[in-house]
Amino acid sequence: MKNLLFIALVALITASCSHKHDKLPYLGEKELVENIVDGKTITDTVYQQIPPFQFINQDSLPVSEKNFAGKIYVADFFFTSCNTICPKMHRNMLKVYEKYKGNPQVGILSHTIDIKYDLPYRLKSYATKLGISGNQWQFVHGSKDSIYSFAAKSYLVAAYEDKADPQGLVHQGWFVLIDKQRHIRGAYDGTDATQVEHLLQDMDILLNEDEK
């Protein structure tokens, strides 16, 4: 009897441990919208969506949300001369790149926040030195006014100029996971290897979610 109880307990613990989430949460603002379907009023929750955007990439080509249609992608904010958190972030982002290299359903979008210095040719040189070719990982340049508010409003990442900072720019190191409908589905500290492992797992979940 005792043995049986023990086995049941072990089974229960194993079951609860191996339980995997098969769906990621939605992050950001949400809104309730009432729709009339078949004469009945139905309330739907509408989640925050990344608005359309237009940037120039490392090859001086325009990049917009259309380049990410049918893809899940990871977005971050950085600048090439940053020697604080950025090297750590991109050391970790390389893991994402290596894992999904060539997968047409996965993209990476890195926005520079140093508009003056990080012109496309500098982004290109940075990408090449990092070992990135092709356009799966886009390094983009926008206008100064738009990039800070875009970071905050669209991706919920703080980035701004700060004269007190030795490099004059301050930003957070989040990796933001976006689904194919441009909803925010996860945010991970890009400087933390453990959280990036978590991101890699969540990306698999998100890719599977779309197949269901």
């Binding site: 604080t84 090297p87 750590k88 050391r91 030195k129 990092l130 070992g131």
Partner: peptide, 15 residues
């Protein structure tokens, strides 16, 4: 360490 890494391996051809 940010650039040169905890294992001293740097980062690709950047560092």
């Amino acid at each position: 360490q940010n650039c040169h890494g905890n294992d001293g391996k740097g980062l690709a051809m950047l560092y």
